[in-house]
Each structure stands twice: as structure tokens, then as C-alpha cells.
């Protein structure tokens, strides 16, 4: 590891410790590191957007390639900025209407197909007397009972209360699995930082 890399990694190690100091209580070192991250991210993204959106989609097509129809979306983009003026803010609604219309038109049929139709299809599978069949039966029972739990036009008592109770248990199993995976995810971040600090210290002392 060269001197420059060692110094940069040293700074990274220091900032990691600054962030960890929040576990004890809020302090000036944590605030400094937190704001540094926010500032660097915002700056990086701004420059990236300038190059990938403004340069690639406005400057290059209009001024270099003479694709003048790009002026129309550019004007719509400029109209979005009129939101800062009370007098002209209504103009931004035209751009917004255009954007929402297109986004909804593109996304809605595909989202319906991928998130609802295909998921419904997956819950309507044949039930057999092997493990796959038992799994399918569990999925169908869990789905129906969970839906029953969210049906509020009938009181949840008697046989219907029993079904919705199974629905609650199904949901709780789902939340439990989600919680376990979340714990794994958060701990992974801690592990990564500890491994980084360990490797840095070992490098520093030439181990």
C-alpha cells in the first residue's frame, strides 16, 4: 500500500470512528462526518446529473447534432423551474401533467402484469402430495387467510375470526423473516467496517 493510499485509508478509518461515536451519544465528530457524507454525495450527484442529463440530453443533441426536436422537452424542463415564481408557477403543471401522463401510461400496464397478474398466477398452482405440493398449499392458505385479515366489512369473530387469526400468524412469520434479514443486513455493514479497521491497523503495523 502506497503512502497516498495509506493516508486516504487513514482518513476513512477516522471517519468510521467518528460515525461510530454516535452509538455513545450525539457529538461534534459525528455531525462533521455526517455532513461531509451528505455534502460529498450531493456534489457528486450534481456533477453526474449535469454530465449525464444536461450535457447528454440538451447540449450535445441540440448544439452538436442539430437534433432540434430536443428543444421541446428542454422547454418543458425549463417550465418546471417556474414553480419558484407565484406568477408563473401554473406553467410547471403542463410539464408535470406531461411527465405523469407518460410515466403512468408506461408503468401501469406493465406493473399490473408483473406485480399483480403474475403473482396471482403463482398463487394458483396445482396441489399434490409431495413437498412442492405442500408448499403450494401453504402459499394458498397463507394468501387467503392474510387477505381475510384485511377484510373489514365483516366482524372478525367465529370461523371468520379463526381464518383472520391464521392470517395474522402468516403475516408475523413474514415480518419475522424480514426482521432476521434486516438484522443480517445491518450487521453486515458493521462487519465490513470492523474488517476494514482491522486490515488498516494490520497494514499500518506492517503485519
Amino acid at each position: 500500500m502506497g503512502t497516498a493510499e495509506l493516508l486516504w485509508n487513514g482518513l476513512a478509518a477516522l471517519l468510521t470512528l467518528f460515525i461510530f461515536s454516535f452509538l455513545y451519544r450525539d457529538n461534534v465528530f459525528y455531525k462533521f462526518a455526517e455532513r461531509l457524507v451528505a455534502g460529498v454525495s450531493a456534489g457528486y450527484w450534481t456533477i453526474l446529473l449535469y454530465h449525464t442529463s444536461f450535457t447528454d440530453k440538451v447540449i450535445v443533441p441540440i448544439f452538436e447534432q442539430q437534433h432540434y426536436w430536443y428543444i421541446i422537452p428542454s422547454i418543458l424542463g425549463i417550465m418546471m423551474w417556474t414553480r419558484f415564481s407565484r406568477k408563473w408557477a401554473w406553467l410547471s403543471r403542463i410539464s408535470l401533467a406531461f411527465y405523469i401522463g407518460i410515466a403512468t401510461g408506461v408503468a401501469l400496464p406493465i406493473a399490473m402484469y408483473a406485480s399483480i397478474y403474475r403473482q396471482l398466477q403463482a398463487s394458483m398452482v396445482s396441489i399434490s402430495l409431495d413437498w412442492a405440493g405442500i408448499n403450494s398449499a401453504l402459499v394458498t392458505i397463507g394468501l387467503l387467510c392474510s387477505l381475510a385479515y384485511f377484510y373489514f366489512s365483516k366482524e372478525h369473530d367465529g370461523w371468520f375470526g379463526g381464518i383472520s387469526r391464521v392470517g395474522i400468524y402468516t403475516l408475523m412469520i413474514g415480518f419475522g423473516a424480514g426482521f432476521g434479514l434486516t438484522v443480517m443486513g445491518r450487521i453486515s455493514l458493521l462487519i465490513d467496517r470492523v474488517l476494514f479497521l482491522k486490515d488498516y491497523v494490520l497494514t499500518l503495523f506492517g503485519a
Partner: peptide, 22 residues
């Protein structure tokens, strides 16, 4: 890991053929 439980249903429906959780 946080996202994984949301994507298992897509594995069961065959919309994805594999999933690496966290």
C-alpha cells in the same frame, strides 16, 4: 438483506430464476 424478503415471491412466481440475499 433488508430487501430480500420482498423479492422471494418473484422467485416463487418464476419472474426471477435466482436470488442472492445479502
Amino acid at each position: 438483506g433488508v430487501m430480500a424478503s420482498d423479492y422471494y415471491p418473484y422467485l416463487q412466481s418464476g419472474q426471477i430464476f435466482g436470488l442472492m440475499p445479502g
